[in-house]
Design a protein around this nucleic acid. Structure first.
Lengths: 213, 213
DNA sequence: GCGGGCTATGAACGATGTTCAAAATAAGAC
DNA sequence: GTCTTATTTTGAACATCGTTCATAGCCCGC
């Protein structure tokens, strides 16, 4: 409790925190290169030059590590989409539509560039009983802001909840096209075709919205 | 090679085929109840009253078993969607739209009813290097027919490839809404809300299509 | 009944995530 | 500086997996 103890524990804690960050970076690198399914505790221990058991002094288990990497991926995705959104003025009709398309294209590009990290966001299944951490909802709400804003222009009479629901629908729809298209689960679709698909989908939907008045 | 040998091998083969079917049913039951991730070779051996090693006389490995169960799921999905499609006349504009919505609603219902079997279709990742079997593409093409047909009414001037691409886009979009909505990955959405979302999405898209002429 | 090919068996192997008793290390007291 | 104590690091051990394979048993035609 005295000064020396506080200093001590903070210095130790600092060392520990450095190792923890090394571990997170190693995990991120391995996931990015080989996919989340091939993440191995023994590999990570070797990566950061530590014994196998020490991994469990730095994180509770591998699931926590995957969640942390996921939060970093979500943050990068948020930054990328925000950048794409900023390029268009959502207060004008055409700008609003172009922003939605730009976000969708950036989403597709992000999925292509960070294939394994992006897939890890959705492939990872929480162990039974564990709950999605709070930061997931928080980060997603932030991402959705970029979609809700142009919808204000395109759905001027709608209530905020209606716009929020539409933002959710559009995000999920674009995600579906990107996900099934790139993953090649049914048929592998080239990236350019996926881009034309999401653009077509958004233009048609926006046309329908504007027609409603 | 003579008759008796043929009879023999066919009777033995018959027994083998019966065990194989038992194994497939056991796997399907376990996946349906607990998800594909908790499928265990030892459990299956116990289910059909056979030694652990015998599993590998009936199928190459568990991946093959999961693929077989997947093909059965796809067949059921095809039947369900076909039934929903048959309820509407795709040659009239309103009927075409209603058919698309009915198919989407049936898709959502199928996903709800056969949660784990449906998720197994998409969660399962082929082991590195192995290819998607042919029946996947074949079954999917068949499913898509129910979507392409009403698009003929809604996109009268379009080329067949354009209609096929739009069918792909719509399927993926609806899948995205259903998948992310029901799975509760971001926010768990009640089934009824998911239904309203896909219906809204399809009505807006169809309105956009009709507006194009 | 009997001999030869096929099949079923479950012990064994190699991975894997996770735990834990013991060793090593660091901190504090004098 | 040295000793005691608390903390951390270690890697062997454990429990589960999928998968393999030598062996034992069985069924068939003869």
């Amino acid at each position: 409790m005295d000064r020396k103890e506080v200093e001590t524990s903070s210095s130790r804690g600092h060392q520990r925190e450095k190792q923890r960050e090394q571990l997170i970076l190693a995990a991120e690198s391995r996931i990015a290169n080989s996919g989340v399914a091939s993440l191995r505790a023994r590999d990570l221990a070797g990566d950061i030059g530590v014994a196998l058991g020490s991994i469990y002094n730095l994180v509770a288990d591998l699931d926590e590590l995957i969640l942390i990497v996921g939060s970093r991926t979500l943050a990068r995705l948020d930054a990328a989409l925000g950048e794409a959104a900023a390029a268009h003025d959502a207060s004008k009709r055409d700008g609003a539509i172009e922003r939605l398309i730009a976000i969708a294209h950036r989403y597709r590009a992000f999925a292509s560039e960070h294939r394994f990290l992006w897939r890890a966001l959705f492939e990872f299944q929480l162990a039974e009983g564990r709950e999605v951490p709070d930061w997931v909802s928080a980060d997603l709400k932030h991402i959705f802001r970029n979609i809700v804003e142009p919808l204000g222009t395109l759905m001027p009479r709608a209530q905020p909840e209606q716009r929020a629901l539409m933002a959710h629908t559009l995000f999920c729809a674009v995600h579906g096209v990107v996900s099934l298209g790139l993953q090649g689960k049914m048929v592998a679709v080239p990236a350019e075709i996926v881009d034309t698909e999401v653009e077509r989908l958004l233009r048609l939907t926006c046309a329908g919205l504007l027609q409603e008045g």
